[in-house]
Design a protein around this nucleic acid. Structure first.
Length: 487
RNA sequence: GGCGGCAUAGCCAAGUGGUAAGGCAGAGGACUGCAAAUCCUCCAUUCCCCAGUUCAAAUCUGGGUGCCGCCUCCA
């Protein structure tokens, strides 16, 4: 498998540190608000990376942190007259509401800054001992000049950065790029005792401390958005490598931005859309499908029309699954035809599986993988279209194989949930939720069928049009009437 | 000022040297009482522009144009 490594700016063969295991750390949000679509992209993408590793048989240890101690949280808490840690906790709960909706698997560990103060202090002490940190009025800074590799991730030198720096230079710092490891407490802020007095951690140190604790130095994959490359990840590398004297993470993966009118969706521009605003208008599987339809390193522009388009595409997949289940439910023809193997479909399925894996092996190209899912849907549609009212044993086996492949693709992309009992993919609100509605629709369909039998087309059409108004679509097929709720 | 990315049909979007995937929309056909769904066919002689390398370039090199990002909190 090839992974594009930001550190080397090339695709590299992925070789885990320990065979069969993948350790990955993905930066999670600072929890002072609901998450927006820009936060959802890395969430969904790295969840998909993880799922693909699981598909390939790796044991994955996935860590995603919450930054629950931070300036913005403190500010927001003061505005809302809340305790900062309580506020952070609230938005952590809300984070999971959105993440669950998007079918994002829980990480093995979701560490919080507030619960790792001791590890953070220990790491800062180590940096002090190694001569990489210095104190100024109760604050502790990391001295970037003391770490020779500074700038290697973002591809710039300290000189480059100073040339046009727009930073306000704090004269107490030895170098403008030096950054805080520990901040002295101010009144009313959460703080913890430390060798340097009461205070709280700086922004970058937590990821260094928690990643090392749960994954060990030199772990496999570190992920996040492009905007974290500098300064956040650059600083993590500096801290961790200065402290541990060995490489921090081996592969760095960064996702591109969500844009609105081609501009970055960001909190400072105010052009962001909350995940739950979007989920009020579009089903979560559509949102996930949309996010995975573009390569993760490319920008992805957002507007409602694009989600409508994604929804129509996903409907195509769902229709194929629906047709597959309908076919699978047909009676089996008596008699033996074990000789009549359906190798044609089986061969196509094997090829599609290979193509899907090839796409995902190439730096997790989900956009290509999605297109192969479409081809699978078409293959199923063609096959089902040729079936008679009764299935041969060979037909049934072929359909079951197709079902397996559908489920495997789906498990990797994480689009539809599976019914634990039947093992079938759940297609959404397709009618099995409400018994009364189910009964009523069946009754109406029966009446309409009687009208149709009498060639009373006007009644039949009135019923069909009327149901459509209510969001129920009827489709007449040679096998009978099929209905679904409008997606 | 420094560093980096992107430009492919009406729209979305893969493709990094071998002759343009896939989806949406659209056109025609099959099926249907009519629809819907599905299937079949069509829909970029061409990949922002110019020059170069090559037997061969959307893909490599140089130049240009346009858009975007990072260098400050941001996924």
């Amino acid at each position: 498998m090839q992974i594009y490594n930001t550190l080397t700016r090339t695709k590299e063969e992925f070789i885990p540190k320990e065979p069969g295991r993948v350790n990955m750390y993905v930066c999670g949000p600072t929890t002072y608000n609901f998450i927006h679509l820009g936060n959802a992209r890395p969430l969904v993408f790295f969840d998909t990376v993880r799922r693909y590793f699981i598909y390939k048989g790796y044991q994955v240890n996935y860590v995603q942190n919450f930054t629950d101690v931070d300036d913005k949280i403190i500010k927001r808490a003061q505005e809302e007259k809340m305790d900062p840690l309580e506020l952070a906790q609230k938005y952590i709960r809300e984070f999971f509401v959105d993440a669950d909706a998007l079918n994002v698997m829980r990480a093995e560990t979701h560490p919080k800054v507030s619960e790792h103060i001791q590890e953070i202090i220990a790491l800062i002490k180590k940096l002090e001992a190694n001569g990489n940190a210095y104190a100024v009025d109760g604050d502790i800074y990391f001295e970037v000049r003391s770490f020779p590799g500074y700038g290697k991730l973002s591809g710039r030198s300290l000189e480059d950065m100073q040339a046009g720096a727009r930073v306000e230079v704090d004269p107490r710092k030895k170098d403008p790029m030096d950054f805080a490891l520990w901040k002295a407490a101010k009144p009313g802020e959460p703080s913890w005792p430390s060798p340097w007095g009461k205070g709280r951690p700086g922004w970058h140190i937590e990821c260094s401390a928690m990643a090392e604790k749960y994954l060990g130095a030199g772990f496999d994959i570190h992920g996040g958005g492009f905007d974290l490359i500098f300064p956040h990840h650059e600083n993590e590398i500096a801290q961790s490598e200065a402290a541990c004297q060995q490489p921090f993470a081996r592969y760095w993966m960064h996702n591109g931005f969500i844009t609105v009118n081609q501009e970055k969706m960001s909190k400072s521009l105010g052009n962001f859309f909350l995940v739950r605003e979007i989920l009020a208008k579009f089903p979560p599987d559509v949102v996930r499908w949309y996010l995975l339809s573009t390569h993760y390193r490319s920008p992805l522009d957002f507007d409602d029309e694009k989600l409508v388009m994604a929804g129509k595409g996903l409907d195509r997949i769902k229709t194929a699954i629906r047709l597959l289940y309908e076919a699978l439910a047909r009676p089996i023809q008596p008699g033996t035809d074990a000789v009549q193997r359906d190798t044609l479909l089986a061969d196509r399925l094997a090829l599609l599986r290979l193509e899907f894996e090839k796409a995902m092996d190439d730096d997790c190209n989900t956009a290509l993988a999605v297109s192969i899912y479409f081809e699978l849907a078409k293959e199923v549609n063609i096959f089902v279209g040729k079936l008679g009212p009764e299935l041969s044993q060979a037909n049934k086996e072929a359909l079951e194989q197709a079902h397996l492949l559908m489920k495997d693709f789906n498990r990797v992309l994480g689009i539809l949930k599976e019914d634990q009992r039947t093992g079938q993919l759940i297609l959404g609100e397709a009618g099995q939720d409400d018994q009364l509605a189910e009964g009523l629709v069946q009754l109406i369909i029966k009446i309409r069928q009687e009208a149709r039998a009498k060639k009373d087309w006007s009644t039949a059409d009135t019923i069909r049009d009327g149901l459509k108004e209510l969001g129920i679509i009827l489709e007449d097929t040679p096998q009978g009437v099929r209905w679904k709720k409008q997606g």
